[in-house]
Structures are given as structure tokens and as C-alpha cells.
Lab assay of single mutants.
Amino acid sequence: HMTFVALYDYVASGETDLSFKKGERLQIVNNTEGDWWLAHSLTTGRTGYISSNYVAPSD
């Protein structure tokens, strides 16, 4: 899985979204569905959809 880092804080707007904080590391589970990616937070252990605009590759 690809690992990304959050560029900004994000508060989930629905049950399927994932809230995260700036600097949080996220593993991308599925990024084939446009701008919203299914991600797993390595910080909180939660999984949900994130906006690809809010993250950048961590490598």
C-alpha cells in the first residue's frame, strides 16, 4: 500500500469519511475511484474515505 501524509486537518462530513489531522500518516487502500480515496490511518487505526487533495506522498 502507498503511504501518504495529511497536509491539512480534515473533519469527516459523513459516516464513510475519515477524519484526520495534519501530519497524520495514511495508507491508501483504494485510489481508483476518482478524487475520494479509501484510506487507513496509521495513527488512529480507522478506515474511511479521504479527499486526495488533502494528502501528499510521504516518500
Rank of each mutant, 00 (worst) to 15 (best):
H1C: 15
H1W: 13
H1I: 13
M2D: 08
M2G: 09
M2I: 11
M2V: 11
M2W: 10
T3F: 14
T3K: 04
T3S: 07
T3C: 12
T3I: 15
F4L: 06
F4G: 01
F4K: 01
F4T: 02
F4W: 14
F4D: 00
V5I: 14
V5F: 07
V5M: 06
V5R: 03
V5L: 07
V5N: 02
A6G: 04
A6P: 00
A6F: 02
A6Q: 00
A6D: 00
L7I: 08
L7C: 10
L7T: 05
L7P: 03
L7N: 03
Y8R: 09
Y8L: 09
Y8V: 11
Y8C: 15
Y8D: 07
Y8S: 07
Y8N: 06
Y8G: 06
D9F: 05
D9L: 06
D9I: 05
Y10W: 06
V11P: 04
V11F: 10
V11I: 13
V11W: 10
V11Q: 11
V11E: 13
A12G: 11
A12N: 03
A12E: 03
A12K: 04
A12S: 09
A12M: 03
A12I: 05
A12L: 02
S13C: 14
G14V: 13
G14P: 02
G14C: 15
G14A: 13
G14K: 15
E15N: 10
E15D: 12
E15G: 08
E15T: 12
E15K: 11
E15Y: 08
E15W: 07
E15H: 10
T16W: 15
D17E: 15
D17H: 14
D17L: 14
D17G: 12
L18E: 01
L18K: 00
L18Y: 02
L18M: 12
L18Q: 01
L18C: 03
S19T: 09
S19C: 05
F20S: 00
F20L: 06
F20R: 00
F20N: 00
F20E: 00
K21D: 05
K21S: 10
K21V: 10
K21G: 05
K21A: 09
K22A: 11
K22M: 07
K22H: 04
K22I: 06
K22D: 01
G23N: 04
G23V: 01
G23I: 03
G23Q: 01
G23D: 04
G23T: 01
G23F: 04
G23H: 04
G23W: 05
G23L: 02
E24T: 02
E24R: 01
E24V: 02
E24M: 01
L26Y: 01
L26H: 03
L26D: 01
L26R: 00
L26E: 00
Q27V: 15
Q27F: 14
I28F: 03
I28H: 01
I28M: 06
V29Q: 07
V29T: 06
N30D: 13
N30R: 09
N30A: 11
N30T: 10
N30W: 10
N30I: 10
N31L: 12
N31C: 15
N31S: 12
T32W: 08
T32G: 09
T32F: 09
T32N: 09
E33Y: 11
E33W: 08
E33F: 11
E33K: 11
E33M: 13
G34F: 06
G34K: 11
G34R: 08
G34D: 09
G34T: 09
D35Q: 11
D35L: 10
W36L: 13
W36D: 04
W36E: 05
W36T: 10
W36M: 13
W36N: 07
W37Y: 05
W37R: 02
W37T: 02
W37I: 07
W37D: 00
W37N: 01
W37C: 04
L38K: 03
L38S: 03
L38N: 01
L38T: 03
L38V: 06
A39E: 00
A39M: 13
A39R: 00
A39W: 03
A39C: 04
A39S: 02
A39L: 03
A39Q: 00
H40A: 07
H40M: 15
H40L: 15
H40Q: 13
H40G: 01
H40W: 08
S41T: 02
S41N: 12
S41Y: 08
S41R: 01
L42F: 08
L42T: 06
L42P: 06
L42W: 05
L42R: 03
T43V: 12
T43R: 08
T43Q: 08
T43H: 08
T44N: 04
G45I: 02
G45T: 02
G45V: 02
G45L: 05
R46K: 13
R46G: 05
R46I: 06
R46C: 07
T47R: 08
T47Y: 10
T47H: 06
T47E: 06
T47W: 13
G48K: 01
G48V: 02
G48P: 00
G48S: 01
G48L: 02
Y49K: 05
Y49H: 05
Y49F: 11
Y49S: 02
Y49T: 03
I50F: 01
I50D: 00
I50T: 00
I50R: 00
I50A: 01
I50W: 01
S51W: 15
S51C: 15
S51T: 06
S51Y: 15
S51V: 06
S51G: 07
S52E: 05
S52I: 10
S52Y: 07
S52Q: 08
S52N: 06
N53H: 14
N53F: 14
N53A: 15
N53S: 14
N53K: 15
N53Q: 14
Y54M: 15
Y54C: 14
Y54V: 07
Y54T: 06
Y54Q: 08
V55M: 06
V55T: 03
V55Y: 05
V55W: 05
V55H: 03
V55E: 02
A56K: 11
A56I: 14
A56F: 09
A56M: 12
A56S: 09
A56R: 11
A56C: 13
P57D: 06
P57F: 11
P57G: 07
P57S: 08
P57H: 09
S58T: 13
S58W: 15
D59G: 12
D59S: 12
D59F: 13
D59M: 12
D59W: 14
D59E: 12
D59A: 15
D59N: 12
